[in-house]
Write a protein that binds this DNA or RNA. Structure first.
Lengths: 162, 162
DNA sequence: CGGTAAAGAGTTATATAATAACATCTCTTT
DNA sequence: AAAGAGATGTTATTATATAACTCTTTACCG
């Protein structure tokens, strides 16, 4: 029997979205940076699901919503702001972006990405992986600055249905 | 006192190159695939240093060498072949390619990349990191297919000179 | 308040990374 | 030599991201 990690903490994904927006407001207020309407909309779009989204996917959604066609820099500026403030993460292996669950504290993300349902699970900080990387680095005299860990495979739900 | 992991096993980097080419010949012969002149040249170019190279960097080097301008698919086909046969790795966070030290056995690469000298150190397989990832995955019922671990920071040499 | 500087957003063009689609060549086998 | 497969050449295009400049909005200062 597999342990199942849920993507949404509550019954409905809407809670994830509203909670994320709320946290974002708090975090930005606390840091004295502005969560402008554009930035907020981009964040909201990223949070539409737990699947990483490409910048141009977001751009399309944004354009559809607004009626007129937005240009790439519009969305990239939003994404850059959100990345800088730890409100989203970028997945290098997918060129995609995903909402961060714990924007209060700066951290790099560790992700398990299901190749079937495309959902990405962010692991908590200070996992064994973190420790292992630090240990390996120390052993070779390497000082770690940042890191990317992206694991691909099948999540428990997809394994079951397969 | 930091332990120093050397990039080149012998005194001269030329040994790395010739050893890599030799291994590649063996591996390809064994698998019944063809290490054509083009593929070999691409591999040789990737191995010019221990710094990850972009596809277009390789393309430029290739073009310079040949006199005439090569087109992107030329180099991408070479890279694809080398990737498929585990002769090189792709670093997703850099969109760059680097020679693999152990092409005999299929594996994903774990890399420590120095932001100062740009050299990339490939860690041996079955490190603690590997184990840690497997453990985390199991704990959440996730079956691992492949993974990407890319760590950025400062290598022992650059730390010393800083 | 009103002026001003800075931050944000719009717009156009372009850089960078990768692939699609089709033609051609070059082996090997017969 | 012919056929077929694998490899390479060639042209065009897609996908991702940024540069450079303009205009607007906001925050701040007197």
């Amino acid at each position: 029997m597999l342990k199942k990690i849920m993507l949404c903490e509550s019954e409905h994904h809407d809670h994830c979205i509203s909670k994320a927006l709320e946290s974002a407001e708090e975090v930005c207020a606390q840091r004295g940076v502005r969560l402008t309407p554009l930035r907020k909309r981009v964040l909201e779009l990223v949070w539409q699901s737990h699947k990483p989204l490409g910048a141009y996917d977001i751009l399309d959604m944004l354009s559809r919503k607004d009626g007129r066609r937005a240009a790439p820099p519009t969305v990239y500026r939003g994404l850059d702001f959100l990345l800088e403030n730890g409100l989203i993460h970028r997945l290098a292996s997918l060129n995609a972006y995903i909402g961060c669950r714990h924007p209060e504290v700066a951290h790099v993300g560790y992700f398990m990405i299901c190749k079937k349902c495309h959902n990405a699970y962010e692991l908590a900080e200070h996992t064994a992986i973190d420790t292992a990387i630090a240990t390996e680095a120390t052993a070779m005299g390497f000082s770690v600055d940042t890191q990317m860990v992206e694991v691909f495979g099948a999540c428990s739900f997809c394994r079951e249905s397969a």
